[in-house]
Design a protein around this nucleic acid. Structure first.
Lengths: 197, 197
DNA sequence: AGGATGTTAGGACAATTGTCACTATAAATT
DNA sequence: AATTTATAGTGACAATTGTCCTAACATCCT
């Protein structure tokens, strides 16, 4: 029972809008791109990827909120990335190297997702050089974001990291329990709780 | 007074060897690639890039050791990356976005470097699609390395991070003062010193 | 509606880490 | 050779953070 998104003819598909932030597309080109994707719905607490699996899909979040994370030997959860509308999510390492994933991805809210398989992604990049450029640019910006997160982990105190996150993604705090924010920042939830007082 | 590297005819240029880990090259192709690079020598304590500058070069380390780092408001040094033989170094963010760099890169030892300007890099990628693939792959692996560093910063204690680094780059400990290792791991040098006892 | 589960805050204490001070040695510079 | 400068270890103390605990709500599910 797939729900369908009803998109008025005058309204751009959100993925088209997203891709056009980087490259320009004709309507025909976008339809061709979209034909390589599938829609999937997932409910809260359902997995997109589990530790040990090999990531063969990359997801684009139409609606919803999710987390990619892992559980350490002590049972503690560490969040690598949150995902919300217009974000791409996968285990990048597993997807690129076709290795077993060290992380889990699951839904914090009911999610509507578009996904592209590795196979279709490769097809699409060879069929359409524009999309290779799109993904190359995305990859570059992804890398820059990771680099800045490392800088922040080294430089900023947990309070500063908390405030920076609040500033950058205020919406996150209304959608995600604070213990997950703590797991992202790398502090215990008690410590995070004390930062407010 | 440029020193020259004398490479016997039977011996591959180290950069050729490096690139051939990912793509195959004829001798002619490599010469073409190399013609886009320049050699430069830097002495210990000399900068390749300073905060506020715009990175217009990417360096490949033939010989030597360097660090990319920044100094925070409290005057503390934080090391983003060490570089040794066969590593690529630049401020990726500044290079890609042509924005002012937040970091410094300078030499821990006398260094022999090859560099390619942004201009030549773009020329080379359009002239030779193989090299676009090479750099795309390098970029992917670079991103994976950053992701794993974040995982390690979240998951591992400073002692564990120390031991993992020692395991992965034992040579680093003979070339780099321990206070720099501490600045890379994100702990004070006193704490690092106590990890041994 | 009601029980189960998940979330948040806070106290008390322990463990870790940072800071400051001092010392000793090694390396670089003149 | 002598003098700076850089590096490394250690003790004492403070600050931060983690762990364990309880309690109060909120949310979810049937």
């Amino acid at each position: 029972m797939d729900k369908l998104i009803l998109v008025p003819l005058t309204m751009k598909h959100p993925l088209k809008q997203h891709i056009e932030e980087i490259i320009t597309l004709t309507e025909k080109e976008f339809e061709f791109i979209l034909s390589h994707f599938e829609t999937i719905h997932k409910r809260k607490h359902q997995y997109l990827l589990q530790e040990g699996e090999i990531a063969d899909k990359e997801f684009w979040i139409v609606k919803g909120c999710l987390k990619s994370y892992f559980i350490d030997e002590a049972g503690k959860e560490h969040i690598l990335q949150f995902g919300m509308e217009n974000w791409w999510v996968s285990d990048y390492e597993s997807f690129v190297k076709q290795s077993r994933s060290k992380i889990n991805i699951d839904c914090i809210e009911d999610c509507e997702l578009l996904y592209i398989t590795l196979e279709n992604r490769e097809k699409l990049t060879t069929e359409m050089h524009k999309m290779e450029r799109f993904w190359a640019k995305k990859s570059k910006f992804g890398r820059i974001a990771l680099q800045n997160r490392i800088l922040s982990l080294l430089k900023n105190s947990s309070k500063e990291r908390y405030e920076l996150l609040l500033e950058q993604y205020p919406k996150l705090f209304q959608r995600v329990p604070k213990k997950l924010i703590a797991a992202y920042l790398g502090v215990s939830r008690e410590t995070l709780s004390r930062l407010n007082s």
